[in-house]
């Protein structure tokens, strides 16, 4: 395996593991995502431990250079991730809208009731 590739992989894995451990400690990520990130870390470690694995696979698949395979793999994984994220954002937006509407309507009801019973000295009825 090329030395530059090796060094790059080592650095990436170190940063990776650092972030994963950090978020495990803070408990700020769902297990689902943690599993995804851990699996990618494990794949990186395996490709480092078995010296000619990356070369072998990329050669078999017809890549001219191993790094090309890694790049294209990374791009596909990132595309998949972004797609997932946008669909989740849309989902969250919808839920957020429903939440804002519900809270605002409830707030109005509470204020109307307060006015009706003069709880904070708020004058006459609304209508």
């Amino acid at each position: 395996m090329q030395n530059t590739l090796k060094i790059a992989l080592i650095i990436i894995i170190l940063i990776y593991i650092f972030f994963i451990i950090k978020s495990v400690k803070r408990k700020n990520m769902r297990i689902n995502y943690l599993i995804f990130w851990s699996i990618t870390a494990v794949i990186l470690i395996i490709s480092l431990l078995i010296p000619n694995l990356v070369e072998y696979i990329s050669c078999k698949l017809g890549f001219e250079m191993p790094i090309n395979m890694i790049f294209s793999l990374a791009i596909f994984i990132i595309l998949y991730l972004i797609f997932n994220l946008t669909s989740q954002i849309s989902n969250l937006e919808r839920k957020n809208t429903a939440l804002v509407q519900e809270v605002s309507i409830l707030k109005k009801k509470i204020q109307d009731l307060e006015k009706l019973y003069n709880i904070d000295g708020g004058g006459e009825n609304e209508k």
């Binding site: 809270v103 605002s104 707030k107």
Partner: peptide, 17 residues
């Protein structure tokens, strides 16, 4: 007589309220 949305939702979200 009014409802204050606690966050800006845009015309669609407002009308649905």
């Amino acid at each position: 007589n009014h409802i204050n949305l606690i966050q800006n939702l845009g015309i669609g979200g407002a009308v649905q309220t």
